[in-house]
Amino acid sequence: MNEYAKQKRKEKIKFGIVSVISLCLFFTIWYVCTAVLHLKPDYILPSPVQVVEAFIDKLTRTAPDGATIFGHIAASLQVALTGYLLGALVGVPLGVAMAWFRRVDMFVTPLFDLIRPVPTIAWIPLMILWFGIGLGAKAAIIFVSAFVPCVINAYAGIKQTKPVHLWVAQTFGASRKEMLFTVAIPTALPLIFTGLRISLGTAWMTLCAAEMLASNKGLGYMIQVNRSLARADLIVVAMLTIGLIGTIFTVGLNALERKFVKGGRRG
C-alpha cells in the first residue's frame, strides 16, 4: 500500500468515527427530548425505545396496515428495483449514445429536453390511468425519475472526455468503438456513478410519493395508513426503514464505484 492509499485509509477511518459519533448524538438527543423531557405526547413524537418496540412488533404483526414490515419492504423493493434498474439500464446507455453519436444526440435531445423538466410526480396520474395501481404504474413512475439523472450524467461524463486522450487512442490506431470503451466511458464513470446515486435518491423519494397516492402495500403506504391512525411510532419505523435501505443501497453503489472508478476520481 503506497503513502497515498495509507493517507486515504486514515481519512476513511476518521470519517467513520465521526459518523458514528454523529449518529449516537442524534439518538441521544432524541431519547432525552422524548423519554426524559417528554416534550411532545408519544403519539406525536415517540421515543427511540418505542420505535424499536414498534419495529420488533411489526416483524410479525400485519395490523394495522395489512402487512408485516418485511411485506412492506418486499413490496417497495420490488417496485423500486424494477423501476430503478430499468431507468439505469436505459438511461446510462442512452446518455452515452447521445454524447458519442452526433445523430443520436440530434434526434433524441429535443424530445429529452421536453420531457426532462416535467416533475416525476406529474406522471403519477397518467401512469395510474395506463397501468392501474399495481407494480407497473409505480415501476414506470420510478423509471422516469431514475432515467433522467442517469441520462444527464452519462451524457455530461462522456462530453468531459479530453480530446488529448482521444488523440492518444487514435494515434495508436484505436477504432471509434475502442475509443468509446477504453477512453470515453472510463472518463465518464465518475459522473455515471453520480447519476446512479442521484437516481437512487429520487427513485426512493418517488416510490414513497407513488405509494402514498396509489398502493395497498409498501413503506410509503405504511406511512400513509399510520398517519390516519396517528401511529407516529410506525411512521418513524417506516421512515427509518426507508433511510436504512437507502443507505444500504448507497453503500453498495459506493462499493461498486470503488471497484470500477480508479485513480481517485470518484464523483
Partner: peptide, 12 residues
C-alpha cells in the same frame, strides 16, 4: 504521438 499537455489516462 507525445503531446505537449499531459495525456496519461487518470483512471489507469
Amino acid at each position: 504521438y507525445i503531446f505537449q499537455e499531459y495525456s496519461s489516462f487518470p483512471w489507469a
